[in-house]
Nucleic acid binder design. Sequence first.
DNA 1: ACGCACAAC
DNA 2: TACTGTTGTGCGT
DNA 3: GAGCAGACC
DNA 4: TACTGGTCTGCTC
Lengths: 441, 441
Amino acid sequence: MDNNNNNKNINNNESNNNKDNLCDIDDKNKIDDENVLYRLSLNPNKGGLQNVDKEKINKIIYEVSKGSAFFKNAKEKEKAHFEKIKEIKKKYLFLKNQPMEYEKQQMKNIMNKMESDRDLSQYIVHVDMDAFYASVEELDNPELKNKPMAVGSKSMLSTANYEARKYGVRSAMPGYIALKLCKNLIIVPTRFERYHELSHQIRNIIANYDPDYCPASIDEVYLNITNFLNDNPNYTPSKVTEELREEIYKQTRLTASAGIAPNICSDMNKPNGQTELKNCTDEILKFLKDLPIGKVSGIGKVAEKTLNELGIKTCGELKENMVYIKELFKPSSYQFLLSASLGLGRTKIENKWKRKSISVERTFSNTSEIQKLEDKLHEISCKLANDVKKENLKGKSVTLKLKTSSFEILTRCLTISKYIYQQEDLYKVGKKVKFIYIIFF
Amino acid sequence: MDNNNNNKNINNNESNNNKDNLCDIDDKNKIDDENVLYRLSLNPNKGGLQNVDKEKINKIIYEVSKGSAFFKNAKEKEKAHFEKIKEIKKKYLFLKNQPMEYEKQQMKNIMNKMESDRDLSQYIVHVDMDAFYASVEELDNPELKNKPMAVGSKSMLSTANYEARKYGVRSAMPGYIALKLCKNLIIVPTRFERYHELSHQIRNIIANYDPDYCPASIDEVYLNITNFLNDNPNYTPSKVTEELREEIYKQTRLTASAGIAPNICSDMNKPNGQTELKNCTDEILKFLKDLPIGKVSGIGKVAEKTLNELGIKTCGELKENMVYIKELFKPSSYQFLLSASLGLGRTKIENKWKRKSISVERTFSNTSEIQKLEDKLHEISCKLANDVKKENLKGKSVTLKLKTSSFEILTRCLTISKYIYQQEDLYKVGKKVKFIYIIFF
DNA sequence: ACGCACAAC
DNA sequence: TACTGTTGTGCGT
DNA sequence: GAGCAGACC
DNA sequence: TACTGGTCTGCTC
Ligand SMILES: Nc1ncnc2c1ncn2[C@H]1C[C@H](O)[C@@H](COP(=O)(O)OP(=O)(O)OP(=O)(O)O)O1
Ligand SMILES: Nc1ncnc2c1ncn2[C@H]1C[C@H](O)[C@@H](COP(=O)(O)OP(=O)(O)OP(=O)(O)O)O1
Ligand SMILES: [Mg+2]
Ligand SMILES: [Mg+2]
Ligand SMILES: [Mg+2]
Ligand SMILES: [Mg+2]
């Protein structure tokens, strides 16, 4: 499920790939390892605790990662992104030297219009469970409590409890690296069914406050408590949220955090906390003023770096620079950033989620044996057919994804005339797809 | 060594690949297996005996081969060739309906000119050893005599003795197929050094008759006995040739056959025979009249089929059709066919052979493991470096050849700035070369 | 329609 | 020894 | 310069 | 079970 469809790709700028022959001599197309590191876990803006020794942790991560194929791939990606940034910067510097008086006035008008359209009538709450998988594991095995623990395997962790986060252990961190950061880390295997069970339980609780709640992921929900507040005049938004979280805790012994605000960080007071942003423009803008842009959901590490390179580090700075952003980014990205800079989250919650795709993927150790690849194709086609059957689905576009040992990701897609759903058909279409592979280099 | 540089590729016609959208409805692009078989050994025009049960042999070959990857490949090749033939035929039919009076007169003039330029003053002899490798093996192991025997392995035979040829066993036939044709066939492994030894011995004998003899391959030589005849007036060309063959036999106990004629089949009287074509236009043309075109060195199975499809089966017919051939084939092919139709072989023998390329190739069982391919690359680079060293060579263009399990042949070439010759360099360049490979289909 | 880079959890 | 798996977005071609 | 089909032994 | 290995030519792009 993915009801988080706000803006999954805002990295769309106007750098038209005019590879300029005239370019700085000492540019040299080299990317320092340091500039790659930000892609390898530990973004302080994203999930995790603050008070950790960032320097030390990054050093360890770097020592473990450097030279690896994964690191090399990150470096390649970084190099490509660096080129894009160069283009944007150039345009930005040019624009900065323009008066842009008309555009500035225009931007003011746009913002004023949006401001006047701001819907302050709705009370939206965003609830997100704390260290969800890890907390469920602690629930089922209390011995794990107060010990650094993470869910996943030595290859990859899904999440870590807050004890482990003190050491820098995070979601999407390989377990063997996490162990370097915290040698006492306990790694427990994933049990999806159990997490889904509790996820349902939690949603049922939330339904009492808004039957039209909108699940955003396995551990989070958006709900609109405006109706509830009208029906229960003695409640305040904060009180509703407290009660809701308390109710979750009572029934599941799991803690949740919440944000009372349109689309604004519910993780300000994590874990087991909540933050209210009054439905009031001034307070929202004050909150945003110094909020690092990377905190905004939809701005990932790449977009964050792009903006940082333009000198934009906070949402306040973003707002100030929207005149330029309008010129530098494609319309949809600009629109998203504009909304973000004004703190305009959705005030309408829709829960009519309809699946658009279904997929199975497996990572396996490097091989050059076609037979092994075919075996894998068979394996995933079986699982996929099974999953498809469960939901009575059918599809007519099949994408085969291949990740090389250098972490390059290739996809090949084939759209066929009739809908299919059976394993044999999926496998057959998968086999039809061709990957071009280069031998030797 | 290859001093046989007459015409190694005459399959160059004027079919400009105009793939016509308008084409016979029942054409269907299908090639019957029967039309593929001619590519799989047993071309009666080429080496071998005549009086064999061609039908039966072809049936056995077909039964063993059909369905194999090799056969499928031959079929693909045939399909492509079929398209070419279609184009040529279409043009041919068009031309046949033209008066072509000017062209016919022009052709007569050309032929008359060539005829008057014909050099009948030189006596050229072409000596070719009988079943060379096999005869050497019989020489060294007389037990093999009078038994069907071939040289090579179960995978591939280089040649067969005349006893084996009665069963249809031929050069370039896989040993395991040959065994189906002749279950008592003895297959002995190849011993190149030994054949080369005898080859030298034979050449030394020939040098007595023409010190400027020209080796055309390991077992054959062109020599010009004109000087010898002048110096020894009591000899006739036939007598010289007989003496020469007798001398070879005396000194090596190996039989040779010979043709006394400019470039005309020395295998008319194989084995252990000789044929003289008088230096006289009429006799030459009479000989050519009914000679199947496939007998001509330079006309392989593909060119033979092309011509056959035009109704041209003999050199006589070829001569009659040269007006059309001139239009249908590219200049160099036309030139070659014209000379062939008139029986104009080279009357100048050159022995200034200079190597143009040197290569090593190995066939191995199918693999999709890069490591194995790299190992093979290493192996052949070692052998190549060794061979290169022996002749003190160096080169700056490296071609890597890859044969797939479906017998598709791919080559990739890389020309570098400086000359190389060491194994390490050869290997390195080989590794630089890239093959594009398609996974799954 | 396809392939890619990014994003979130 | 070892860097996930699922869903979705927007853009360029 | 590069890649392919065809040829010969 | 299994369809070679070495050298060269001409065409096309
Ligand atoms: N990169 C990932 N890969 C796989 N599973 C993930 C990943 N990130 C998160 N998950 C899973 C495990 C998490 O417990 C669950 C919810 O994610 P999320 O809410 O972002 O973090 P969390 O609930 O573990 O901690 P937090 O207290 O920060 O919310 O989704
Ligand atoms: N296709 C081949 N592959 C590898 N080696 C070959 C091939 N054809 C011939 N040879 C080798 C083995 C032969 O004995 C030698 C001389 O070839 P060639 O003169 O054509 O046949 P031959 O000498 O075996 O019989 P013939 O009596 O017909 O001349 O070259
Ligand atoms: Mg959470
Ligand atoms: Mg979450
Ligand atoms: Mg011979
Ligand atoms: Mg020969």
